[in-house]
Design a protein around this nucleic acid. Structure first.
Lengths: 249, 249
DNA sequence: TAAAATTTCTTCCAAAATCAATCAAAAGCT
DNA sequence: AGCTTTTGATTGATTTTGGAAGAAATTTTA
C-alpha cells in the first residue's frame, strides 16, 4: 500500500468517526504499527490530524475552541500558584488591568476583594468576572478568533482612557537582553501600554518563559515586576535588572 | 476506548443531561472507575465540567446561563422565524450592528454570508460569531452582569465611530404613541444611536411586544422597520407610521 | 443527635499499553 | 550493482490503566 493511499484512508476514517485507534489503522491498512505511527506524525506536522495517546483525532477548528483549552493544560499547577499570589496583590478599591491569557484568567477565581474595577481585553475573563460580581470593563475592538482576545487600534484607544493601580500581564518570552516579548504585534502594543498606564505592573510567567524570545518586544524588564514559580538559572542577573517574586507555595 | 473519546462522551452526555453519575460513565465507556475519575479531574481542570459528589455537572455560565436561557425559551419558534428572516437581509460585504439580546443572537446561526463585519455589544454574540469565523467587533465598556451586554457611555462613544449598512435591534415595547421602549436607559441610548448610525434599521420583536411600553424610549416607530411574526390587532395603524414585515414561515 | 453503615474520594502502585528512537532488511530508483 | 527511501521489528522509556487501602463525605440506623 502506498504512503499517499494510507494517508487518504486515515483522513477518510477520521472524517467519519472523528477518532481512530492505531490498531484499527494497522489492521485496515495491513501495515505495521511503525508505519502508521510515521503516517500520523507526518499528518500532524502538516496540521491535518491531532495525535492523541493511542491514536489520532480530527483537528477541530471551531467547535471546541481547543487552542484555548489545551494551552491551559500546560504547567497548570505552576500557573495556578503564580495566579494565586498575584491575586493577593489586588487591594480593596483598586482599579486593575487584566491582560488576556491563561495565567491571568486563573487569577480571577482567587480574587476576593469586592470593591474593585477590572478592565480586560479577554472575553473569557469577562465571563468569569461577571460570575464573581466584579465590576468588569471590556476593551472594545476587533476580536481575535483563536484566543478570544480583543486587539487592534480600537482596543488601544479604549485602553488609553484608563489609569490603573495595577496591571497583570502575560508574556511569551523573558530575556535579559530583549526584555518581554510576544508573537503578536497587536497584542504586544496593548500590553506595552497597559504597563505604561499602571502605577505597578506585574508580568506573570512560569519558568518555561525565561530565556525565550518571541517576535515582538513588549517592554524592558525593569518596567514590570516578574512573578514566577522557580528560581531560574540566571536569577541573579535578572535581579539586577528588575524585581522578581518567586512563588514557592 | 481512547482518552479523548471518553472525554467527548462525557461532555456530550453532560450537555444533554446536565449531570452524570460516575457509575453511568463507567458502564457507558466500559472502563474502570479510576479512569473516569481521572477524566473528570482533568475536565474540571480545564474548566469544562464541575465535579460533584458522585459524578459531574455542567459548568455554570457556559451553556446554562440561567437568566439568559430561560428567556430564550419563551416564544422560541417565533423568535427563530424572525431571526431567520432578518439574517437573510444581511448581504455580502455588509457592515452590521447586532444589538445584544436573544432574538438577535438567534440570527447568528442563520447568517451565511462570509465577507461581512459585525459590531455588537453582546458578549454572547461574540462567541457565536467567532465560531462561525465572522469578523467580530465588540464595543468597549462596562459589562452588565445579568445580560452580559456592554453598556454605558464608553460603549456609546465606541459605537459612534462606526457607520452601519444595517442594524438589528431588540426592544421590550412597541407602542403607537410611545414608539420603541426598553427598561434600561443605558441600553436605550445605545439602541437609539445604533439606529441613527445605520442606513437601514430593523427592530426584531415578537407579537407580545406590541402595545407594551417600557421605561425608556429608544426612538419613534418610523426610524426602523419592524420584523415580527404575526399581524397584530392594530396592524393597519402601525402600518401608517412605519414599515412592518410579518414573517409567517 | 450520635453512631454505624454505606458510598464516594483520593492516593498510591504495579501491570499493561503505547510511545519515540534505532537499525537492519526490503523495496524502489538510477 | 550502488544508492536512497520505506518498512517492520526491537528496545527501553513514558503514559495510561485498574485495583486496593485508607480517608472523607453522605446516608441510614438507632
Amino acid at each position: 500500500m502506498l504512503t499517499e493511499e494510507r494517508h487518504q484512508i486515515i483522513l477518510k476514517i477520521l472524517r467519519n468517526k472523528g477518532i481512530v485507534k492505531i490498531n484499527e489503522l494497522v489492521k485496515l491498512t495491513n501495515t505495521s504499527e511503525s508505519t502508521i505511527r510515521r503516517d500520523l506524525t507526518y499528518l500532524e506536522r502538516i496540521h491535518e490530524v491531532k495525535r492523541i495517546h493511542g491514536g489520532a483525532a480530527l483537528i477541530k477548528g471551531r467547535l471546541n475552541e481547543p487552542s484555548y483549552k489545551e494551552k491551559q493544560v500546560q504547567n497548570i499547577d505552576e500557573k495556578s500558584k503564580i495566579a494565586k499570589y498575584a491575586s493577593n496583590l489586588v487591594e480593596d478599591g483598586d482599579c486593575i488591568y487584566l491582560d488576556a491569557g491563561t495565567t491571568t484568567f486563573e487569577m480571577i477565581k482567587y480574587i476576593d476583594k469586592e470593591n474593585i474595577v477590572v478592565v480586560t481585553n479577554g472575553l473569557k475573563h469577562i465571563d468569569a468576572l461577571v460570575e464573581k460580581d466584579i465590576n468588569a470593563y471590556i476593551l472594545g475592538g476587533k476580536v481575535k478568533g483563536r484566543t478570544k482576545a480583543v486587539i487592534g487600534t480600537d482596543a488601544l484607544k479604549n485602553l488609553e482612557k484608563f489609569r490603573f493601580d495595577k496591571s497583570f500581564i502575560g508574556t511569551n518570552g523573558i530575556h535579559l537582553e530583549y526584555g518581554f516579548t510576544t508573537p503578536d504585534s497587536e497584542e504586544a502594543i496593548l500590553k506595552e501600554n497597559a504597563i505604561k498606564l499602571s502605577r505597578e505592573a506585574y508580568v506573570l510567567a512560569d519558568e518555561s518563559k525565561f530565556g525565550e524570545v518571541a517576535f515582538v518586544k513588549i517592554s524592558d524588564l525593569n518596567r514590570a515586576v516578574i512573578i514566577t514559580n522557580s528560581k531560574i538559572e540566571d536569577y541573579e542577573s535578572y535581579l539586577q535588572r528588575t524585581r522578581i517574586k518567586v512563588v514557592t507555595e
